[in-house]
Nucleic acid binder design. Structure first.
Lengths: 234, 234
DNA sequence: TCACGGCAGAGTGTCGACAGTTTGTGAAAA
DNA sequence: TTTTCACAAACTGTCGACACTCTGCCGTGA
C-alpha cells in the first residue's frame, strides 16, 4: 500500500545518501523507509505512538524487523524510544528547528567552500541547469516543483563537495528538515527571495569565490529558518 | 570484565551526549558501549569481523541485543554491516579521516561562534580553567592528561553553544575521531602548537570576538588533521 | 467525594529455534 | 598442479513465545 509512496521518485531522493548505510537490507529498511516518509510528509504527527506489535501485523512480519526499523528511525531523530515505553514520533519544537537549521547552515557553508575548491567547470555548469529549473518553477509559481528541484540542487551541491561523510550527514539532516521545510517555502514571497539567493550562489560558484559562496550558502539556509520563525507556524 | 573499562571516568566522557539517544536501555547499550570503547581504543582493529553468535556467548545473552548493539555501532560508523554478511570494524583510511576532520572543523567553528553569542562571562571563565589544566599538562609533558583534558575542554565548549543537536552530533563525530586522535597529539611538538591555539581561542572568547573564535577553532581542528597527514601513520 | 492500592490488559525486551544464504573445504576434472 | 564444482559448516535474518514492566481502571477506605 505504501510501496507507491516509497517507490516515488521524489521521496526516493530523500534516502539516496542513506541507503548504503543501512544494515539489514530488506525488511527492516523497507519498514523504516515507509515510516520515515509518513513522518516527514506529516501523515504521522509528532507525539503519535507507534506500536511494534501493530506494525508487525500491518507489515506481515514479526516484531524483530520492526524493532530494527524503529532503531533506524531513532538514528534519524524521527522517533524517540524511551526505555520500556512506547516509541513515539519525535516532536518538532521551534528551538530544535533552530538548532537543526544552524547546523545545516554551517555544513552547507562547508559544502559550498569545498565545492569551489574541488568541482570542475562542467560540474558547476550542471548546477546552473538545476538553477534554470528553479527559475522556471518560480515563474510558474509551482511551489511543489520548486521544492523538489531545490532538493535536487542541494543534493547535487553536497555530492560535488566530494566529501561522502558530509553528504551522508546532510542527507540525514535533510530528512529531518523536510518535516517543516515545506512550511518555509509556501510562505508568500519566500520563493522569490530563495531564488535570488540561489542566483548569487551560482554566480559565486562560477567566479570560484569560496568565501562568498560559503557566506551566501549559510545565509540561504538561515533565511529559511527566519521565514519559519516569523510565520509563527511551528 | 569490561565493566572496568566502560565505567572508567575518562572513557565515560565519550558517551555522555550519546547516552540519552539510545533506545534499548541496558543490554544492547551496554554491549554497544563495550564494543565501542574497544574499537576507539584500538583493541579491535579495522577489518576485524564481529560475529553476533560469539558476542552473544561472550555477554551471556541471545543474539537479539547483540544485533541491536551492532546497529548502534553502525550508527556511529564504527562497524559496517553488509547485508547477509558478517559485520566488521570499519576501516580508517586517510581520505575518510580528512572528511571527518573537515566536518568537525566546520561544526566547531559554529560552536565557537554560538558560544561567544550565548555563553555568560562565568561560563567562559570556566573554559579558562580547563585551559589552565592543559597548560599544566603541557608543562609536565603529560600527553595522556592533555588528551583527556582536551576532550573535557571540547565538551565544555560544545555544551556552551547551547545547541543540543550540535552537541550530540559532535559527540558522535568525536567517538569516531578518537580512533586516530591520539596519533595526532603524540607527534613531537604537536602538543605545544595545540596549546598555543587554545590560548588564542580562549582569548577570542574573552574578547567576545565571534569571527576570530570561529576561525581559530576551525584551524585548530584542521591543524590536527595536517599533523596526522604529515606523520604518514594512517 | 476523593485519594490510595491493587489488578488486569497491553507492550517491550529477550530468548531459543529455524530457514535461507554465504563461506570454506575437499574431491573431481582438466 | 591448477581449476571447478559440490557439499558441509557457519552465520545471518526472521519468527513465535515468554517474562517482566508499565498503564489505566476499578474497587476500597477515608
Amino acid at each position: 500500500m505504501l510501496a507507491a509512496d516509497v517507490g516515488d521518485l521524489r521521496t526516493e531522493m530523500l534516502f539516496t545518501a542513506l541507503r548504503g548505510t543501512d544494515g539489514s537490507s530488506s525488511l527492516a529498511f523497507t519498514i523504516f523507509q515507509e515510516l520515515a516518509v509518513n513522518i516527514v510528509e506529516g501523515r504521522l504527527l509528532p507525539g503519535h505512538e507507534v506500536n511494534s506489535a501493530e506494525l508487525a501485523r500491518r507489515f506481515n512480519t514479526s516484531r524483530t524487523p520492526v524493532r530494527e526499523a524503529l532503531l533506524l528511525l531513532e538514528r534519524e531523530d524521527l522517533v524517540i524510544i524511551p526505555p520500556r515505553r512506547r516509541p513515539y514520533v519525535s516532536p518538532v519544537a521551534l528551538p530544535q528547528v533552530r538548532e537543526i537549521y544552524e547546523i545545516r547552515a554551517s555544513l552547507y557553508g562547508l559544502v559550498s567552500q569545498l565545492l569551489v575548491e574541488r568541482a570542475t567547470d562542467e560540474e558547476i555548469h550542471g548546477l546552473a541547469e538545476w538553477q534554470a529549473l528553479l527559475v522556471e518553477d518560480a515563474r510558474l509559481g509551482d511551489v511543489d516543483g520548486y521544492f523538489w528541484h531545490n532538493v535536487g540542487f542541494r543534493n547535487a551541491e553536497a555530492s560535488l563537495s566530494k566529501n561522502g561523510e558530509l553528504q551522508r550527514r546532510l542527507s540525514s539532516l535533510g530528512l529531518q528538515m523536510h518535516r517543516f521545510r515545506h512550511l518555509s517555502l509556501s510562505l508568500p514571497g519566500r520563493l522569490l527571495h530563495s531564488l535570488a539567493d540561489h542566483e548569487r550562489l551560482v554566480r559565486a560558484y562560477a567566479d570560484r569565490d569560496a568565501a562568498l559562496a560559503a557566506a551566501v550558502s549559510r545565509s540561504l539556509v538561515l533565511r529559511g529558518y527566519h521565514a519559519i520563525e516569523r510565520s509563527g507556524r511551528v
